[in-house]
């Protein structure tokens, strides 16, 4: 895109600047639209599994429900509790929202369609997702109220625990791909399963890693069954109890943007990103971004499905799963996979 703006007669730096801003807008605005629609899908799937109708009043099939909700929270009054630490209280939702958008910079939507094609893409995602805990912790502390604080403590313990096993799972993928660059990871999955199917999930050593990654991504985004931070029976609404209006909406948008990010990471790391599922030439005529979006949507459907069917974990069960089951298994698989590659690929 930089070359296009240069052809309009700008010097390189201005062209780069404007191209980057355009790229950011081209990712962020459709992402916000996608978040609005995905909230609608979430509610519809949830309703269908519960044999209800779900949102069906605003717009055709209730499609505009999310926008109506957005307008409602936008028109509400922003309430800041008098005992709250004002600056941090306002900053917390902004941090959550910014961090949720920031990670999308390195996501490749199609071959070459990526804002920042950096060598350390996967590490960047790890770094950014480790930042997302601050929004929650700051919100919980600044609210100066006991339930948000409990929720913040739970959230940070949960996210740090699951980040460890996510890190090991990513190492397994990186060992196979030989790169931290997300584009190269996707390309290396072409014809991975016997030269027929695209995706690391069809590898017998990596399939258990995908299962663990999917469960960990549920925990990382605090979705059911790991939504202990928002357990309404125990903590009112968790860290966002004291929030209203736009600051609440920012938490909401950030949460769903994070969920979409995790869905797309599942797609990129294990299901071959923008590649079609089967390595068969006619399927490559479908644009890569369509495959990418279809796969991401499939994972979002799985997230909703889990949300509608699974009861919430207890806190000690959550910690046990993270530290006593996922961590040893992922560590074992790092050893297994590196050993396997040592004897086959690098022998």
């Amino acid at each position: 895109m930089t070359a296009f703006f240069q052809s309009l007669g700008m010097n390189y730096e201005w062209a780069w600047f404007i191209a980057t801003v355009c790229g950011i807008l081209l990712i962020a605005l459709p992402l916000m639209l996608a978040v609005a629609m995905i909230i609608y899908v979430d509610r519809k799937v949830w309703a269908a599994i519960n044999l209800r109708r779900g949102p069906n009043v605003v717009g055709p099939f209730g499609l505009l429900q999310s926008f109506a909700d957005g307008l409602k929270v936008f028109l509400q009054e922003t309430i800041i509790p008098s005992a709250a630490n004002k600056g941090i209280f306002i900053l917390a939702p902004i941090v959550t929202f910014t961090v949720a958008l920031g990670a999308w910079a390195v996501i490749p939507f199609d071959a070459g369609v990526v804002l920042a094609d950096i060598n350390v893409g996967l590490l960047y995602i790890l770094a950014i997702s480790s930042l997302s805990v601050y929004g929650v912790v700051m919100a919980g502390w600044a609210s100066n109220s006991k339930y948000p604080f409990f929720s913040a403590m739970r959230a940070s313990a949960q996210m740090i625990s699951y980040e460890v096993s996510i890190g090991f799972i990513l190492i397994c993928v990186v060992l196979y791909a030989g790169s931290f660059n997300l584009t190269e990871i996707v390309v290396s999955q072409k014809g991975h399963g016997l030269g027929i199917v695209n995706g690391y999930v069809f590898n017998i050593l990596l399939f258990p890693m995908w299962v663990m990654f999917f469960i960990s991504s549920l925990a990382e985004t605090q979705r059911v069954p790991f939504d202990l931070t928002e357990a309404e029976s125990e903590l009112v609404a968790g860290y966002q109890t004291e929030y209203s209006s736009m600051s609440f909406a920012l938490f909401w948008l950030g949460e769903y943007a994070n969920i979409l990010l995790m869905c797309s990471l599942n797609t990129i790391l294990f299901f071959g990103g923008w590649l079609p599922p089967v390595d068969w030439a006619p399927l490559y005529y479908v644009p890569g971004i369509i495959w990418f979006l279809l796969k991401t949507f499939f994972f979002f459907f799985m997230f909703s499905w889990v949300m509608a069917t699974v009861p919430r974990y207890r806190y000690d069960q959550l910690m046990r799963l993270g530290w006593k089951i996922f961590l040893p298994i992922s560590l074992l698989f790092v050893v297994l996979i590196s050993g396997w590659l040592m004897f086959t690929r690098y022998a």
């Binding site: 350390v120 590490l123 960047y124 790890l126 770094a127 480790s130 930042l131 805990v133 740090i160 980040e163």
Partner: peptide, 9 residues
């Protein structure tokens, strides 16, 4: 990236 992951995270 390591600085952010280890120290900040």
């Amino acid at each position: 990236m390591l600085l952010v992951i280890v120290y900040v995270g």
